[in-house]
Design a protein around this nucleic acid. Sequence first.
DNA 1: GCATGATCATGC
DNA 2: GCATGATCATGC
Length: 474
Amino acid sequence: MEPVPFDKTNPKSIEAYAERLLNKSLKNVIGEDAIQTYSGKGKLGQLLEDLYFKYKPNSISGPDFAEAGVELKTTPIKETRSGFVSKERLVFNIINYNEEYKNTFTNSSFWKKNQLLLLMFYLYEQEKLDIDYVFKIIRLWQFPATDLKIIKDDWQKIIAKIKAGKAHELSEGDTIYLGACTKGANASSLRAQPFSDEMAMQRAFSLKSKYLNFIIEKSFRKEKIVIDYNEYDRILNDENALGERRAEYWKLNLNEVEPIVKSVNEYEIGETFEDLVIKKFKPYIGLSHTEIIDTLNLNPGNSKQISNAIARGILGVRKKKIEEFEKADIEMKTVKLEKSGSLKESMSFAQIQYKEIVSEGWEESYWFNTLTKRFFFVIFQKDKENVLRLKKVFFWTMPSKDLITAEEFWNDTKSKIRNNHFDNFYKISDNKIFHVRPKGADSADLMETSFGTFEKKKSYWINSSYIKEIIQHN
DNA sequence: GCATGATCATGC
DNA sequence: GCATGATCATGC
């Protein structure tokens, strides 16, 4: 066997060799002949291994480049008006429910395989073949310590659900950065789980698409720092030693966002990111808007967004967006309760895209992707004097049974739009969690349909009664 | 008092 | 200019 064209024990050497593909496609570099004589099959990652790296992984459970500890990942980006963004989540190894729970994080299948990634982002273009995709970012990636801490907690949360015999109830929205996404041809790709007879959907570890956007954005800026291994140690210190330590990674340069947690030293022992967020709110429970604003010296103005500004102020993020929430795609929702504990208003979401929904599948739809997010609720309630006071905060994910209702609602909405019926959607009075209601500048604010006609802009809403129940039970 | 339709304020 | 989050207005 001919020697590989790089030092297979050295991540930097593998990266340097990979970088020769930058702004090129696989076909550009190895030529059409090599591809035509290739007898294997597979997607881009496989083709790269076979035809470009000429490297056969000698272990299935470990990283692709075993000697260097490097896992190769190809993942698509797409171009939008605001630049390049991730097209989809990054999918890691399938979760073996019967095995993974026996491990600690440090010797988990996830960590052993994915602690050092060679990421190859390519520009997805619908009409192109895999071999013609052009690579736009090629780089080694290690998780910054503050992110690794969250990822470890995410992993443990997934394991806890398996240990509780609830693998069938896993949801991508359960966790912050590391998700358990469905993986399989269809909903009948089921697997056994160790502590329940119920079959569970096959799932894989995955990184949220929004998290990838940060890697993408910061990679284009090419900023480097040296990783803080003391912080790594603090995260992993209750377990085995970390493997070989890696040299450099690219720092997230945060101009538009600001993290809640600046260093892993801010965590108490055993505390998760969510614990820490909730803890930050504790001293302000029961205080009024004005009292919180005075205490923290905030300057939120007098707008409709005041509750939002107060919540960010409490988290120490004043002007910018919350980095962790952006990367995890956590949806922060502030709610105002009346004295009685009910909500005056239902909760609105984005406008229904009439031209898009008609050809979408459920799991790629806006509504599915919104409802499977993790939510962070910040609840204010009016007191006897009608003064809004902070009541409670909590993280929440929609239970799977309500997602079934959501799918029915969405299918109903979609089929009406397909049939050119733009009224008669679910109403609040149907009492089925969701409804459709107008939302535009005014009643003359219209959106084009797939029929070429124009209809009033309408949005997805969650009924206030449902939100009220969530608040009561959390 | 609530359901439904309508519209405002802000930020990107 | 427009989408989003928030809220108002009307009528039953």
